[in-house]
C-alpha cells in the first residue's frame, strides 16, 4: 500500500541526495544535477500532498510550474557552464576561483 508517508520518504531521500551531490561533487554538471534532484523532490511533495491531503488544484499547478521553471533554469545554467568551459577548459568547481580576495 502506497501512502502519503512513502511519497514523503522518497522525496526526502531525493532532497538529501541532492544536497549530498552538491556538497560532495566538484563537477559543475553534477552540481546542476543535484539542483534538479532538489527541485524534483519538492515537485513530488506538492503532487503527493495534493493527492492524499488537500484535494485542490493548487499543488498540481505548483508542480507543473516547477517542472517548467526547472527546465528553463537548467538551460540557462548549462549555457553559462558551456561558456565557462570554453574560456577555462574545465568544469571543475575549484577552477572558478579568480574572484576571491
Amino acid at each position: 500500500m502506497i501512502s502519503l508517508s512513502s511519497y514523503l520518504f522518497i522525496s526526502l531521500v531525493l532532497f538529501l541526495c541532492g544536497i549530498f551531490v552538491m556538497v560532495a561533487r566538484k563537477n559543475i554538471i553534477a552540481i546542476l544535477l543535484g539542483i534538479e534532484l532538489i527541485l524534483n523532490a519538492s515537485a513530488l511533495n506538492f503532487a503527493a500532498y495534493t493527492k492524499f491531503l488537500n484535494n485542490n488544484l493548487e499543488g498540481h499547478i505548483m508542480s507543473l510550474f516547477i517542472i517548467v521553471i526547472a527546465a528553463a533554469e537548467a538551460a540557462v545554467g548549462l549555457g553559462i557552464v558551456i561558456r565557462f568551459f570554453q574560456l577555462r577548459e574545465s568544469i571543475h568547481i575549484d577552477d572558478a576561483s579568480t574572484l576571491q580576495n
Binding site: I28, I38, Y49, N54, M62, E73
Partner: peptide
C-alpha cells in the same frame, strides 16, 4: 546560477511542506 539554483530548491522544499 549555482547559488541561485540551490536556494530556490531549498525554498521550494520548504514551501511544499507549508502547502502540505
Amino acid at each position: 546560477a549555482l547559488y541561485g539554483g540551490i536556494s530556490a530548491g531549498l525554498m521550494l522544499f520548504g514551501m511544499s511542506h507549508i502547502f502540505g
